[in-house]
Amino acid sequence: MTRTTTIDRADVTWLLRRMRLIRQASERIARLYPTDVMETPVHLCIGQEAVPVGLCRHLRDDDKLFLGHRTHGPALAKGLPLPKLMAELYGRTTGCSHGYGGSMHVIDLEHGLPGSSAIVGGSIALGVGAGLAAKLTGASWIGVSYFGDAATNAGVFYESLNFAALRRLPVLFLCEDNGWSNVMPKSAHSAHDITGVAEQMMPVLQADGTDALSVYEHAGHAVERIRGGGGPMLLHCRTKRWMKHQGPERCDLAANHIDPERDCPIVRLETWAQRSGMLGADECTAITAEIEREIDAAIAFAEASPFPQPELVEV
């Protein structure tokens, strides 16, 4: 496949800003979480930021992204405004799901986020449905099913790929492979090779999920081909989960080796951007400070927002 994806300063700035947004928001959530202001389980994606941003730089607002339980990163990358996410975590009416969804059920119709699911695997099929709708109506959007490595053990993964391939639907299957199903390593939960299974049915690309440029490049090829009528593809992104499956704590599993420099998608992009002359060190620092202010504002918004009326549950 020819490599035609190009990247410019605006792309790099966008990738870095969104990764910083996801990282710093996650770190803030982790700091606040023990105070119980957020009464909802949180599945943070510190260390995995390269995957959603590299993908979403190529998606339009009308492309439909379906997520599993680890929502914050891909939702923010797709365009969910941080105040709406924070307010949802705080259980407020101004949250993206008006306080009915919580961390695992986020939605933003304006930005092509028709909802997310906490049952691992099932949302893979919904992205296929979005692709089917595009094909039946002649619309130019694509469906994106975004899932982790453990979801590939569920039958719905195979069923969804099979149907998308049979009908040549405009669907991207994005596997964010962090190597863990809760505390179970991939070697214990999957006898199959994820890309091997998918390759029987569709073309597969593999990206380095700790490198935003690698994901950006491969996602660009995949989205272009799918949008052009080439049928479904799977993009496999191997990444690393720095946190526990759920909650604000770092992952302490002995087998999960994290090198905070080499494995960090933000360090990698900043280093590359500065070496290549795309961005200056001062610009990177400025982005970090801007994002902190955005987070302050989002939390202030959430804290000032009203709680839902309990009597509304009696509908």
Binding site: K64, F66, P114, G115, G122, S123, I124, A125, L126, G127, V128, G129, A130, G131, L132, A133, A134, L136, T137, W141, G143, G155, V156, E159, S160, N162, F163, L166, R167
Partner: peptide, 25 residues
């Protein structure tokens, strides 16, 4: 042309139908 046969995969096909409904069909 608007009648689609499917493989035996009721679970995913229900999700496909839901995804299509969420996409305006």
């Amino acid at each position: 042309e608007r009648v689609l046969g499917t493989p035996i995969a009721e679970n995913a096909m229900t999700g496909v139908a839901l995804g299509a409904a969420l996409s305006g069909l």
